[in-house]
Design a protein around this nucleic acid. Structure first.
Lengths: 153, 153
DNA sequence: CTACTGTTGTTCAGATTTGAACAATCCCTT
DNA sequence: AAGGGATTGTTCAAATCTGAACAACAGTAG
């Protein structure tokens, strides 16, 4: 057991600012999406992810991994989105185990309608508040962290 | 209704990297805390917050605001921590409505025991991965966002 | 073809979160 | 002192998340 390398003041400040900013931003985003579209942030992210694909569809497991949520949470949320008519399930060609989540036209339309207000929040509280340099540095720093977390889930 | 200012490629990259990194880091932290201490991240943050105060105590509402969780979630979690003997409730002197959450000696001891492993995770996947400059820029950027979210909750 | 191992998506029970409602209390004005 | 509006912490039902268990299927070696 090595001696603990505690965080110094600068490291602590960064970590706390990061956590605090995320939590507050998440809350704003949730409020906006709920009020304007009756969706949760995870649900919105599912729609965004699907819409970014050429065929607007993706395997359940891959989708869960991409959004960093559990498989069972995704099963639940896809069920909700299916009820709302924004997503539907399809058999996966070539793998009878598989299920494809497919964005419906209605889902795409819904996304088009609500995305502007969402982007507005992201801009207002983060993107438009920081400089281009800070934006790039943020991306690089987060990228390094993501790289470190690449392996094993 | 103004024309929507969509995110350009750089902005999109920053936003996605930020969200993705947070989610994955959160998952790692949850896994570590659950395995090593049987605590959730919110519970751990309550202990940290209380331990950072001179008298190791804080009003419920202020605590909820500081941790950016709902009052009812805090009521629940303080209940859990009370069961575990890590926190106790006390009447608030000068305000009969108030309740103080107080870190117990056992809670402080628990924190001392588990903090090293937690810090290790934060270092391994974020702090130690980025340069000092990136750390400072990250703090400044998050600070600006937090400032923008200052008002109204 | 059969056995074996890994993957897939769902289900289930339990834990946690949210927001609204609520009673109790505070504070300010009159 | 008394009313009116705000704040405090809790409760409750509903929604959501987690992790383990599970059945179905895929892929591989024998």
């Amino acid at each position: 057991m090595t001696e603990t390398r505690w965080l110094d003041a600068v490291e602590m400040a960064a970590w706390h600012a990061f956590l605090f900013a995320y939590h507050r931003l998440e809350k704003r985003i949730e409020e906006q999406l709920k009020a304007d579209a009756g969706l949760t942030h995870p649900q919105y992210e599912i729609l965004v992810k699907l819409s970014s694909l050429p065929d607007h569809q993706m395997r359940m497991t891959e989708l869960a991994r991409g959004l960093v949520i559990s498989k069972s949470a995704l099963t639940y949320q896809i069920g909700q989105l299916e009820k709302a008519g924004l997503v539907r399930r399809t058999d996966c060609p070539g793998d009878d185990r598989g299920v494809l989540a497919v964005l419906t036209d209605e889902g795409m339309e819904c996304l088009r309608r609500i995305a502007p207000a969402h982007v507005e929040v992201v801009r207002k509280y983060l993107i438009d508040r920081i400089t281009r340099d800070e934006l790039i540095t943020l991306t690089r720093a987060m990228g390094k962290a993501n790289q470190a977390m690449q392996a094993t889930g």
